[in-house]
Design a protein around this nucleic acid. Structure first.
Lengths: 250, 250
DNA sequence: ACGGTAACGTGTACGCTGTACTCCCGCCAA
DNA sequence: TTGGCGGGAGTACAGCGTACACGTTACCGT
């Protein structure tokens, strides 16, 4: 009897149940991660939050990895667009700080981004507009390339080996994809992210290979390191101090 | 019957079985992570590798977290000590590159270090000797402090919010630990890692609090960011290029 | 208004994870 | 020889991600 009543109630509930959709799933994911941290974030918990059975999520998201991708995309989409008309330095500075701010609202996002390997559209768009700021500032593609590496994680508030292969699939993946589909992909990438394409092309030209085969990590690392060390030296020589007086770097 | 035979064989095996110990567990952990990556690294797999039942590991390691701590310690211990008598810049440079090299041998170590929160002795020792290089180079404690933050992850090959609280437990932890034990801890820390203590003391003095209550993350972040941006600007102005010609930063 | 159909949600199950608890074997000191 | 005890074995549990098969719902063209 009680059984019966419950059954009927459920049916009614089902009638007025709000449909699930990708967006709802993603947003619920973000807020669940916000309050519980990334460690206790599980498909099952998220399902519970949405008052739905775990497997229902899989109709809107192909797996947990892809769910996290989507959640990260939401965060990145929340980063302010570049200031227009500003000096490159100010523009970059503001943008980085905006990114930092956005990520600080979602403590889990840092680790999530770090562990993510796939470059989602939002990430690519972000990088693309970032590159645009340097190019607009008159930077050569060459310098822009290395500068992007050096900035690396500062873009997000931390470092990672950013875009090892900005556009190109790995050799393994290449084997699995028909070549004409590949060139189509490349063309679309070039349309969507023209600046990334520019940099990639320039880098590829540099080392003589046709397809950018990744960057010289060691070089990029030392480039950034030396930049910092030189900066340290300069500050040291001029007796820099953090106390109220004038900050000489800026 | 077959049962019997197996049982006897097992007994014999047990007789000549090499005893487990913390070191063997840790080293086996490192090599298992080396070959299989960190994702497929599990207590059960490690136990299997050591031909031992999973729970046996827990006699030598209190949990997986602590096991990873130990594994990281091994890697860090493998970083070359600072060059003695060298210019600070060369010394730092070499050390950083040595760290990078050490971590590249163990691809899993990066993420492992990033996710680790506890500062183990090896980490503290590493940081301490790092600070020593700057101080020996004549850097003020103030500058050294900020420079360490700026170097941040480059020390390992990536960034993280390094030593938010270099020595001090958080307020929550403080509550759980008797005060006299705390001061003892502090004294031991000061003995073992004198340079860290110096920096911590200086930073604490700076903002007027008695116990260093963490650093101004925002300031540190902008400090490093501006250092990079200034560097970019300089390179840009002098028409830097990565091609064969002279590298002007170095 | 109705019936077909595709999208959506459910139930069940599997193999994996980390680890708590209990027990007992085999080694070492006395 | 014996007694103790420490380190490994066995069993168990809750939680994880997700494959697969099965109902149910919502919508659309007639």
């Amino acid at each position: 009897m009680t059984e019966r009543v419950r059954e009927v109630t459920e049916k009614l509930d089902m009638g007025r149940r709000v449909r699930l959709n990708r967006d709802r799933v993603l947003r619920a994911g973000v807020s669940l991660a916000d309050e519980g941290g990334i460690d206790s974030f599980s498909m099952r918990r998220l399902a519970q939050e949405l008052e739905v059975v775990p497997m229902a999520l899989y109709k809107h998201v192909s797996n947990k990895e892809e769910l996290l991708d989507g959640m990260v995309e939401i965060i990145i989409a929340g980063i302010d667009p570049p200031e227009i008309g500003a000096d490159w330095k100010d523009a970059v500075r503001l943008r980085v700080l905006s990114a930092r701010h956005a990520l600080q609202q979602h403590p889990w996002a840092r680790r999530a981004i770090e562990t993510r390997t796939t470059k989602t559209p939002a990430v690519l768009a972000y990088m693309d507009s970032f590159i645009a700021m340097f190019l607009a500032g008159g930077f050569s593609t060459d310098l822009t390339h290395h500068v992007m590496h050096a900035l690396g994680g500062r873009m997000w508030g931390f470092t990672q080996e950013l875009f090892d292969d900005p556009a190109m699939p790995t050799a393994a993946k290449q084997a699995a994809v028909p070549p004409e589909a590949q060139t189509v992909m490349l063309r679309r990438m070039a349309e969507l992210y023209p600046n990334i394409a520019t940099i990639a092309a320039s880098a590829a030209h540099d080392d003589g290979s046709v397809v950018g085969h990744g960057c010289d990590d060691q070089f990029e690392f030392e480039f950034a390191l030396d930049l910092l060390l030189d900066g340290f030296e300069r500050l040291h020589r001029q007796g820099w101090t953090s106390r109220p007086g004038q900050r000489s770097n800026r």
